[in-house]
Nucleic acid binder design. Structure first.
Length: 575
RNA sequence: GCCGAUGUAGCUCAGUCGGUAGAGCAAUUCACUCGUAAUGAAUAGGUCAACGGUUCGAUUCCGUUCAUCGGCUCCA
């Protein structure tokens, strides 16, 4: 075990990488090189684009620097001295970073060999303390993350105290790549995209569609049991709707363009809320019917920037498991706590443990009564507390229309994806003039909360594929069992067994190819089928079946009734 | 959208320093009739992402577009 934290080792590795880049690109301008959760990076401005070969040379140069055990020497400069030094070296980005340091801040530098960097530290004692490094990739990245700023080149790397840990990490990355939902989606014939249809528009193949249907059925059931009412609304609406909602003002860039019908502009919906509000407005509402919990699996289309599309996790057409909660100020705390509890309980049922809430508060530019913001924030905070979770607070990170809690879960290779969201909205009730008649007989504006638990069915499915590595539990599996006749003589008996099991409600198919049993088993296992049912001469005669389970292995020859009982149990237990 | 990379058979990939392409797996057919991770043989399968330019000739070189991948930003 190293005496230094991984962060310190990685941050020092970033410095060594910068030193190596300085050697190879003397004119390089440097930005910053922090440690991250999964490694480190450094941003550079270079006179040409980096190639994979450059990465190798940089890594080689780093190894040399590490081998020389160069000390990290800390020293302080006055602001004037620091500015002079950075100016002489034409380090424009560093100069901007220097300006960020507060007036009374100490300006420290670290020297490693010939390389000097403006840096707060801390660092390892000398470069030899960086056990093992590997550079992973080059990517573009805007200075300060702002797309108006120049684009720098970012090199990502990973560092560990020992070679063994590095090796283990690289193996983990390889394993994670094997569960990539895009790869499995193709291999298991779950979904695809077509250039003819358009980017970010998912084609659900029969097997993927089955899983989706199972998820949706489960979702509906849980919602009815939790006091929700389900609705359906159209995919398009007139421009006046989107003018009232304000989407045409502040969301237009993300909307598909209008289509003209009978001299009216119609827009494909990017959100479901205005439709739900129209239902609310269809008659006068009393406080007695609140809270309303209105849910819809609503398919929306958003023009997402082409560069952000990512398999099922970021698409342009997706179905939100959307709901709007409309309630009185007195109800708001209980409602929020209930939504969070509901959400967490569903994620738990699918076996997710790494879920992190992020609380986003009031931004500088916001609409709505500050007192209502405060009440909302209290409700959100209390809900998190009640759920016993720690949450990260993003001060001022809320939307202009309300504060929110987002839940994020990690995919196979550690990337976090936003899924559940609970968002207050002080804008739409105002714009649509939503009211209810209170006990006092007067009109009041209700609280409205948007929430999605899965986020979108697409994203949830993508994450689910990676979570299970394509091996779906029996209740979700599109094909639960495959029957393998040993020779063609058993094809008839096998087909009969298939039909029998189908009649009992199981999803079963038959491998009637001319192939050896071994080959059929190999393919069935590759498809991660839960049950493999072998029918040979003996089973055909007895009306039994030789069962092999995906996790439990060979279970011997049993009767069809016993098999069905076992499968039923497994479906009910959702394992 | 921006930076960088990639696009060859259903899949995974090779290949052509410019003369219209090949493997393995999958598919189809035939033979074999087989007991728990690959039986053998044959056949078929491609506007080499699309469009333009250069050239006697372009899958190959150049340009544009589209799509995908790694990131940035944004987000469910």
């Amino acid at each position: 075990m190293s005496e230094y934290s991984l962060d310190t080792i990685r941050h020092s590795a970033a410095h060594v990488m910068a030193a190596a880049v300085k050697q190879l690109f003397p004119n390089a301008k440097f930005d910053i090189g922090p440690a991250t959760e999964n490694g480190f990076y450094y941003d550079f401005d270079l006179d040409r684009s980096l190639t994979p070969e450059d990465l190798k040379s940089i890594e080689k140069a780093m190894r040399k620097l590490i081998g020389r055990k160069l000390p990290f020497e800390r020293f302080e400069l006055s602001r004037a001295e620091a500015e002079k030094m950075l100016k002489e070296d034409n380090q424009t980005f560093k100069l901007e970073r220097l300006a960020d340091i507060p007036e009374d801040g100490v300006i420290t530098f670290y020297r490693t060999g010939d390389y000097v960097d403006l840096c707060r530290g801390p660092h390892v004692e000398h470069s030899g303390c960086i056990g093992a490094v590997k550079l992973l990739s080059v990517a573009g990245s805007y200075f300060r993350g702002d797309e108006k700023n120049p684009m720098l080149q970012r090199i990502y790397g990973i560092a560990f105290a020992t070679e063994e840990e590095l090796k283990a990490h690289l193996t983990m990355l390889e394993e994670a790549a094997k569960r990539d939902h895009r790869k499995l989606g193709k291999e298991l014939d779950l979904f695809s995209f077509s250039e003819n249809v358009g980017p970010g528009l998912v084609l659900w193949h029969p097997k993927g569609a089955f899983v989706r249907n199972a998820i949706e059925t489960y979702w509906r059931d849980r919602h009815y049991k939790n006091g929700y009412q389900l609705m359906y609304t159209p995919h398009i609406g007139r421009s006046v709707l989107w003018e009232t909602s304000g989407h045409l003002d502040f969301y237009r860039d993300s909307m598909y363009s209008a289509m003209e019908i009978d001299e009216n502009d119609y827009y494909v919906k990017p959100m479901n809320c205005p439709f739900h509000i129209e239902i609310y407005q269809s008659r006068l509402r009393s406080y007695r019917e609140l809270p309303l919990r209105w849910a819809e699996l609503g398919t929306v289309y958003r023009y997402e920037k082409s560069g952000v599309l990512h398999g099922l996790l970021r698409v342009r057409g997706f179905t939100q498991d959307d709901a709007h909660i409309v309630c009185t100020p007195e109800q708001i705390e209980d409602e929020i706590a209930e939504v969070l509890r509901f959400s967490l309980s569903i994620w738990k049922e699918f076996g997710f443990k790494e879920i992190k809430p992020y609380l986003a508060t009031r931004p500088a530019k916001a609409v709505g009564d500050p007192a209502r913001w405060e009440k909302a924030l209290v409700a959100l905070k209390k809900a998190v507390e009640k759920a016993g979770l720690d949450c990260e607070v993003d001060e001022g990170g809320g939307a202009f229309y309300g504060p929110k809690i987002d839940l994020k879960v990690k995919d196979a290779i550690g990337r976090e994806w936003q899924t559940s969201t609970i968002q207050f909205d002080f804008n739409l009730p105002e714009r649509f003039n939503m009211t209810y008649i209170g006990e006092d007989g007067k009109k009041h504006q209700p609280f409205m909360v948007h929430r999605a638990l899965f986020g979108s069915i697409e994203r949830f499915f993508g994450i689910l594929i990676e979570q299970y590595a394509g091996a779906f539990p029996l209740w979700l599996a599109p094909v639960q069992a495959r029957i393998l006749p040993i020779t063609e003589n058993q094809t008839e008996a096998a087909a009969k067994l298939r039909d029998d099991l189908r009649q009992r409600g199981f999803r079963v198919d038959l491998d009637s190819r001319q192939a050896g049993l071994g080959a059929k088993i190999k393919d069935a296992r590759h498809e991660r089928l839960n049950y493999i049912l072998v029918v040979g001469e003996r089973e055909a005669a007895e009306g039994t079946v030789a069962v092999r389970h995906r996790n439990d292995g060979e279970l011997g020859t049993i009767s069809v009734d016993d098999l069905a009982a076992r499968m039923t149990r497994e479906v009910e237990e959702k394992i």
